[in-house]
Design a protein around this nucleic acid. Structure first.
Length: 268
DNA sequence: GGAGTTGTTTAGGA
DNA sequence: TTCCTAAACAACTC
């Protein structure tokens, strides 16, 4: 379920590998996870490199490496729909869905993704890769201003607000369940067109996007624990689920091509 | 067996 | 031309 909080949790899973050398690696390089990946650079730089650090940005993950020759290298991972990062014993045998495994003397760092919607990128050099430099302001950063959001809503005024919340160029790290959570808290129907939202409603989207990101990072992002009990999260996939605020039935429709759970009695 | 899935990219249509 | 939507991707669960 990799949205920003799950991605942050997965980043931490590989933290115990930081400061340690990668002795060898295995990769299922024929899968679509490695599309566009510089495999020769990966093969040359990874063995002997030290894992120096990591950072999450929305759904994007970056692992910083220092190769045996002292060069900087950049390993970018995206979890797609079903990607997971974990650790295993140093003598681990990768299975079918373990597409990238970094072996260290202390443990193996495993990237598994059975649906293969995830992605591996690799680059060598002092400069960070372009795709990493050009990421939009994180939802919880000071640069994620109400004014900036306002301009985005105006530009995308003909699309439903739910679709906008899924656009990574403006809401990095927000995915399907968080988008539903945000609109439920903002009390706005998911199919409302962005251009039809009043100024006060736009402000609510901004505020709740930040609140949901913060709350998710404090729970899911720390130890994969569920978000607070009064969140829509707990009712959204239950058959006959009811709105935690009104007690009225929840509805499920498709908005922006995605299953959307919302509370008709609450969201206007 | 069919439907659905927490993501992204692309082709095609309005 | 611009912008939005639906389909495709792959493999699992219910």
């Amino acid at each position: 379920m990799p949205e920003l909080a799950e991605v942050e949790f997965y980043r931490k899973q590989w933290s115990r590998g930081i400061g340690h050398k990668i002795t060898r690696f295995t990769a299922h390089t024929k899968t679509r996870l490695f599309r566009g990946c510089d495999l020769s650079a990966l093969g040359a730089a990874l063995p002997g490199a030290v894992l120096a650090g990591s950072e999450a940005h929305g759904k994007q993950l970056m692992f910083f490496l220092r190769s045996s020759g002292g060069q900087r290298a950049w390993l970018g991972l995206h979890m797609g729909m079903t990607g997971k990062l974990g650790t295993a014993p140093a003598d681990y045998h990768p299975d079918r869905h373990d597409h990238l495994v970094l072996f260290q003397n202390e443990q193996a760092l495993v990237f598994a993704d059975f649906r293969q919607f995830g992605r591996v990128r690799f680059g060598v050099g002092e400069e960070s890769p372009e795709w990493w430099r050009e990421l939009p302001p994180p939802v919880l950063s000071p640069r994620f201003t109400a004014k900036r959001l306002e301009a985005f809503l105006e530009r995308k005024r003909r699309a439903p607000i739910k679709s906008l919340l899924l656009m990574q160029e403006a809401f990095p790290g927000i995915g399907n369940w968080m988008a539903d959570e945000i609109l439920w808290r903002a009390e706005i129907r998911p199919d409302r067109l962005a251009g039809d939202l009043a100024g006060e409603e736009r402000r609510r989207v901004w505020r709740e996007a930040r609140a949901v990101a913060r709350g998710a990072l404090k729970t899911v992002g720390v130890d994969f624990r569920d978000p607070p009990k009064d969140w829509l999260f707990h009712a959204r996939w239950k058959k006959g689920g009811t709105c935690p605020r009104t007690g009225q039935p929840l509805d499920r429709t498709t908005v922006g091509g995605r299953t959307t759970c919302w509370s008709p009695a609450l969201q206007k």
